[in-house]
Design a protein around this nucleic acid. Structure first.
Lengths: 208, 208
DNA sequence: ACGTATCCGTACCGAATCGTACGGTTGCTA
DNA sequence: TAGCAACCGTACGATTCGGTACGGATACGT
């Protein structure tokens, strides 16, 4: 019943598949978190869904917190690389900012981010990790991009950190907290609309 | 050891004090929630802190969810009345908006609101309640105020709902989520500064 | 003054879950 | 081919907590 994929396990993992299997377990944990919520997430549930044993979970991730930690760090890694990609585009600032804004909003209201943020709220340690690995790594990236816009003379950005917060507020508004509290996420169309409007307002506030 | 306040209880509650005692229990529950977090909140802990018995908690509030429900509803009631008060001022729109913004930000980063929002994230039911009793009651109040500004010709407010979201974003930015994730709340001075700046930007975006 | 309803404190039960242990099976390795 | 190490599945102990029950004490109504 618990779906083995292809090969007849067990036996030692070929060292190459070990990484893939870890990812599969994290996928299962994330799915479990999305489906059942942070309080009803159990190690047994994750093991069952992953077709793994509890012993393997504990052996690979230490404990429940270790599993969630790995999950958060993986998510943060994806986030940072996506942001970096959006910001590295050679397009004009409006396009870059819109791409960034769209990506950020879509990410923050996506089921993974929502589930992980909810889970983080239940533990100061996990919450701190989300902050460290997410917000505190994305912030500087965007801020340095915004500062570069100031250098180019396109915009006047006296305080990049504050400018980032402003952009964030214009894009996210109360959407994230509402989705965290259970409202359906906005549609893709609504997201791009919001991003365009937000960037427009951002540029209007910063040019003069 | 569990501190009785003044009168030697028990015995039937004089019907007048019953309400006060309920409030005291809710206070204890809130304090417990703030101190220990949503997952470590236990009925026994609340009872001990309130100097009450578990049986009374269950008799008065039904179950754990009922207690949290009462807590959320009480908080929402306070919030709504504060917002109403801020909006009923006869001052000019900038002052009113700044007062509202300051109050909103201070509230949302306050320990009670933070603890309740964290708790709500652990249960879809509680989350929905927070949304219903909080955001969905405050929204219309502010929106109707903003619409009245449009009527007066001070501002151009094509969509009050969208305007409220904009104001919210300008005021709150990423502050609430960061505090929810464990960052220290901004100081009072920082809050009023932010409110002033936000209202300034809000008015700039809406007049023309 | 007496009875009764209310409330405190604690004991109790059952369910869930964390983390560990152990037997059984499989594939790699010498 | 034989041994070993990794992994699955499950069982197990311990803990915690939600919810209920019960004895004891007290203030109010009659």
């Amino acid at each position: 019943m618990a779906g083995r994929t292809t090969t007849g396990r067990p036996g030692r993992l070929p060292d190459a598949d070990r990484g893939a299997r870890e990812q599969a377990i994290l996928d299962a944990a994330l799915a479990e978190l999305v489906d059942r919520g942070p309080t009803k997430l159990s190690m047994l549930g994750v093991a069952k869904r992953a077709g793994a044993s509890k012993e393997t979970l504990y052996s690979w991730f230490g404990d429940r917190d270790g599993l969630l930690t790995a999950l958060i760090e993986r998510n943060a890694e994806q986030t940072v690389s996506r942001v970096r990609a959006a910001l590295d585009s050679p397009d004009d600032e409006r396009s870059v900012l819109e791409a960034f804004a769209t990506g950020l909003l879509r990410l923050l209201v996506g089921p993974s981010s929502v589930a992980l943020n909810r889970a983080a709220m239940t533990s100061p340690d996990l919450a701190a990790l989300v902050l460290r690995s997410g917000r505190h790594r994305v912030g500087p990236l965007v801020e340095s991009y915004l500062a570069s816009l100031d250098d180019d003379g396109h915009l006047t950005v006296p305080d990049p950190a504050s400018a980032f917060e402003l952009l964030y507020g214009l894009v996210i508004r109360d959407t994230q907290i509402r989705v965290l509290l259970g409202e359906p996420a906005p549609t893709a169309k609504a997201i791009t609309r919001r991003a365009e409007e937000a960037v427009d307002q951002f540029l209007r506030l910063l040019t003069r």
